[in-house]
């Protein structure tokens, strides 16, 4: 093994070490109790049975939020701090020919979830600060895609 081979082996090992660290970080962070990623849940089998399920419908070009009491709000909704909520997101055609794919994104909550026609996706989040936070649609969905955004209020 000459000097060059040794150097090559060294940098390969260094890269593998960094990769191992990355993989460990990935496994650790996804196993945290408050981690949640979008899951397909069309049959509603895994939803929690409490009243903190919010039905979300994305249509061109608005987000509709229906809470457990059946009250629907458009492009805004209110949640209580330190409570775990589950969003069940679907896409509706509204007054258009097709339902299209949207993507609901809460930058300050670190969650995002696709709204796919014919499929219910669910994701959980727990707000820990009160205040007003933003959400956006980040999957291009047509003319007024950029207006598919709003505020979520977290109250005590």
């Amino acid at each position: 093994m000459n000097k060059k081979m040794k150097l090559e082996a060294m940098w390969l090992v260094a890269v593998l070490l960094v990769l191992g660290m990355g993989a460990g970080l990935e496994l650790y962070s996804t196993s945290l109790p408050n981690f949640s990623v979008a899951e397909k849940d069309t049959s509603h089998t895994n939803l929690p049975t409490n009243s903190n399920v919010i039905q979300v419908t994305g249509e061109q070009w608005a987000w509709l939020f229906t809470n457990s009491t059946g009250q629907t709000t458009t492009d805004t909704f209110t949640v209580t701090v330190n409570t775990t909520y589950t969003l069940v997101v679907q896409s509706d055609k509204g007054s258009h020919q097709f339902a299209v794919i949207h993507d609901l994104y809460f930058p300050q909550f670190d969650i995002q979830i696709y709204a796919v026609p014919g499929q219910n996706n669910s994701i959980s989040f727990t707000p820990i600060h009160t205040g007003t936070f933003v959400f956006e649609c980040v999957e291009y969905c047509g003319y007024d895609h950029y207006l598919m955004r709003g505020y979520v209020k977290v109250v005590a």
Binding site: E59, Q60, W61, A62, L64, T73, T74, D75, T76, G94, S95, H96, Q97, Y143, D144, Y146, L147, R149, G150, Y151
Partner: peptide
């Protein structure tokens, strides 16, 4: 052309001052 823009939905935005509003839409 079939661009309905759910006028009812976007009226909800009027309370949000930083939203771009195209009133004609």
């Amino acid at each position: 052309c079939c661009g309905s823009n759910g006028g009812g939905h976007h009226n909800g935005n009027s309370v949000l001052s930083s939203f771009a509003q195209i009133s004609s839409i």
